[in-house]
Measured scan of single mutants.
Amino acid sequence: HNLTITQGKLFFHYNPKLCLSEIHKMEEVSGTKGRQERNDIALKTNGDQASCENELLKFSYIRTSFDKILLRWEPYWPPDFRDLLGFMLFYKEAPYQNVTEFDGQDACGSNSWTVVDIDPPLRSNDPKSQNHPGWLMRGLKPWTQYAIFVKTLVTFSDERRTYGAKSDIIYVQTDATNPSVPLDPISVSNSSSQIILKWKPPSDPNGNITHYLVFWERQAEDSELFELDYCLKGLKLPSRTWSPPFESEDSQKHNQSEYEDSAGECCSCPKTDSQILKELEESSFRKTFEDYLHNVVFVPRKTSSGTGAEDPRPSRKRRSLGDVGNVTVAVPTVAAFPNTSSTSVPTSPEEHRPFEKVVNKESLVISGLRHFTGYRIELQACNQDTPEERCSVAAYVSARTMPEAKADDIVGPVTHEIFENNVVHLMWQEPKEPNGLIVLYEVSYRRYGDEELHLCVSRKHFALERGCRLRGLSPGNYSVRIRATSLAGNGSWTEPTYFYVTDYLDVPSNIA
């Protein structure tokens, strides 16, 4: 807008934040220059609390790290170098490059900038070799853009010569660093050979998330399962459950009422301010606690030095998902009996873990797994792929695949051998790939016309006998059925096997 004052003059007093240069501009645009008398524009009460600059400061050096910015700028000295009290560095987070010096300023003089007072450097006698002032900004957020400017702080001049310097606002972004852990990993099994893994992005990506790394490792069953005799009275049979499938998407929606109208769909109840505040506090606490764990609990591995020492970490090797089922080394339970199943799973520490690289999504279907087997899954978020990966501390989750139908069934015939004193040795093959492992066998036998009897055969007993022995049988026709019990439950009964026990007292003698 054009402003013209045809008559009258300007009068400025007691404006401590208004620089004289701005008042002189007002004289020019209003056409009143030359009308004012000496005392109409006070030299001592206008701009006496402001830094009124008329020179431009330029930054000469900028260096960044993930949490620091090192700045240096060209030296500046007023005509009387004693008038320079120091520099004021202003900075704040700036997602967009549209910041002005006066953003967030209120009537009390406060604003949204963080201000650092910096002492002037030592003055050199040689004007050509003056030290460049600077400042190291610490405690910054990774991968965050900051708006920065600097200006001088000078003393009051009796001659009211307006001098000083100020830089333009520059924008500097800190470097990326390792992201925080992925949030809320959930693993479920939808079949006997697959596990579905879902997660949420890290709360602090500290860069642009480029991919996720998912490692999985087959877990050995508890050692007590191999040692305890679950045929003993009072000892509860062990059981394991597989990871249940995901709930429906509708039930997972946030901010939804727990109660549904019987007449149909209901609208979600909005969260109160107290609920939102509580969630923010919980989120802040979780982030602080995660940072504490990362800094205190997890110790970084030592990389190899120039002395030739090897990095103890196993090298990563990509495998196809079809090879995942046989990740671990199978060892027989008892070496003397080769027909026992290889369900003991000690994992070799030198073995390469299978892994998958996930790009542009937060889910993965891990296939080719062994049925009813526990897996430990390790999830890392990465925001750099080359020249070397920059990934987060791992988040861990466990899951067990679903049982395989008929995996616990005894394959092959049940054979028998009759000894003296009416002892019958029953023999059968253990299931080759049971659900988890076989903890015991149930032997059901009966003599024709009598009630059915049951015998429990422990895992250890089966390994020693290759089956079991029935003792003290009365003469007669017998039928026997056997079924295995694994961590997933009972298998199917075998087809009945028949044998006849004679009275050993009636056996004919070869003595003449």
Rank of each mutant, 00 (worst) to 15 (best):
R481M: 10
P270L: 04
S203V: 10
D450Y: 07
F355G: 08
G472K: 14
V359F: 08
S367E: 03
S262F: 15
S283A: 11
K460L: 08
I377P: 01
R481W: 07
V359A: 10
F246M: 08
W216D: 00
W493S: 02
E260C: 04
W493Y: 14
S458D: 04
T343I: 08
V327R: 12
G264Y: 06
L235F: 11
Y478E: 00
Y498Q: 07
K357V: 14
R240G: 13
E217L: 11
T485E: 15
T340H: 05
R471F: 15
S486M: 00
V297P: 07
L487R: 09
V299Y: 13
R446L: 07
Y375I: 04
N339T: 07
F499P: 01
P300N: 06
Q219M: 06
H425I: 15
W493L: 03
C456N: 01
K432Y: 08
D229L: 08
G467E: 02
G322K: 05
S239E: 11
F289Y: 05
N435V: 00
V358S: 04
R313D: 06
Q256W: 09
G325C: 11
D506N: 14
V324E: 03
T497S: 06
I418H: 04
Q256V: 12
Q380W: 07
F462C: 02
P312S: 12
S479R: 08
V414C: 03
P431Q: 01
E362Y: 14
G234V: 13
A399L: 11
Y396L: 11
L487I: 08
N383M: 13
Q219A: 06
H425Q: 08
A463N: 14
S474R: 04
G412L: 10
N490L: 08
V423R: 14
E217T: 11
E378V: 10
N326A: 12
D450H: 14
N255R: 12
L321C: 15
R370M: 13
W216H: 02
D261L: 09
E465A: 10
Y441P: 00
G234D: 12
I209K: 15
R459S: 09
E451H: 15
Q275D: 06
A336H: 13
Y500A: 12
D204Q: 04
R240M: 13
L464V: 12
G368L: 04
A263T: 06
S363H: 05
G374D: 10
V345H: 08
G472C: 03
R286H: 06
N383I: 15
E451L: 14
P300A: 08
Q275V: 07
S367K: 10
I418K: 07
W493P: 02
A405T: 09
Q252Y: 05
L487V: 08
F215N: 09
C267L: 03
C468W: 09
S486C: 01
P300Y: 04
Y396I: 07
C231Q: 02
V393H: 12
L455F: 10
N421Q: 10
V397S: 10
R286N: 03
T303R: 09
N295L: 04
R370Q: 12
R471N: 10
P508W: 03
S458A: 09
P346I: 15
Y448R: 15
G308K: 02
N422I: 02
Y504V: 12
T373D: 03
T502C: 08
V345N: 08
G472P: 05
S344K: 08
S203Q: 10
S257T: 07
A335R: 14
V443P: 01
R316Q: 04
L470K: 00
S479L: 02
T241A: 12
N208S: 08
D385F: 11
S367H: 05
S315P: 10
G368V: 04
R286L: 07
C267Q: 10
V480G: 01
D250A: 09
A405D: 13
Q256L: 12
R376D: 15
T307S: 12
S367R: 08
R481T: 11
S243F: 09
D450S: 14
I366L: 12
H371F: 12
P354Q: 10
E388V: 11
P205L: 14
T497K: 07
V331Q: 11
R459T: 06
Y212L: 03
F226S: 08
N422Q: 06
K460A: 11
E420Q: 08
L232I: 11
G491Q: 15
P332R: 11
L379I: 09
S243G: 06
F226W: 02
G264R: 13
V358G: 09
T485F: 06
G476P: 00
W216S: 03
E451K: 05
N208K: 15
V214G: 02
L464N: 15
V480W: 05
